[in-house]
Amino acid sequence: MARKTQLLPKIALGVVGWAVALWIFFPIFWMVLTGFKTEMDAISTPPHLIFHPTLQSYHDVFAQENYWHFTFNTVLMSVFATGGALLLGVPAAYSMAFFPGKRTRGTLLWMLSTRMLPPVGVLVPVYLIARSTHLLDTIIGLGIINLLTNLPIIVWMLYTFFKEVPVPILEAGRMDGANRWQEISVVLLPLALPGIASTALLSLILCWNEAFWSLNLTSSNAAPLASFIASFSSPEGLFFAKLSAASTLAVAPILVFGWFSQKQLVRGLTFGAVK
């Protein structure tokens, strides 16, 4: 009897879980579906679920814009921003995790608070700085702004992972004669590798999907995939199918990447919570 009474809430939870998952997934599903429709099918009401799939939108997209140019920019920018953020974040998180001072806690909170500011609030100063330093429409410029906006999250994540590394292991390294750099590179980093990998992964995804700065700080040379998508949104004419096709193309690589690394990502994001 006891098992039966437990079964009901279990089923209910399952139903809720699936409903939420489908709710989240639906826009992506609809986007992919729309990409294979004709422009007419794409705007029809009520929407057609059964239609003749066509690759016309993809043909148009490839004919109109250089997809690989945007992808290349995005990859380069994401890798640059993530690498740079790790380079700054690892020493920062190391010192905060293992040599905390009176203000460490406050510094961490302050760093996070910078994420609470809507980016548009600093659009004008950032734009002006980028213009006067000739970083407008450059991969470096966009990379730097992505690096800086993601740095707080990266430091926070690394800090939590480093906190999980037993201090005596680092001390054993010190007793064995490791200097600071060897202690970090040979002892700490290999131990925190899963955490660092998921941090890097998250940063890559955030950079890849970032749109606000991409649209405001780049035009053509350094335009990433966010601009690629935006270029198919026009004030007149039918563009839903092309827009969907472009969006599908833009998110496909990171989606596949995320799919393959989901185990690592989930482990990283729930690290400590489930331990």
């Binding site: 054993a172 390294g173 002892v187």
Partner: peptide, 8 residues
Amino acid sequence: FQSYALYP
């Protein structure tokens, strides 16, 4: 060390 502190 008490916890051995071996490099895992």
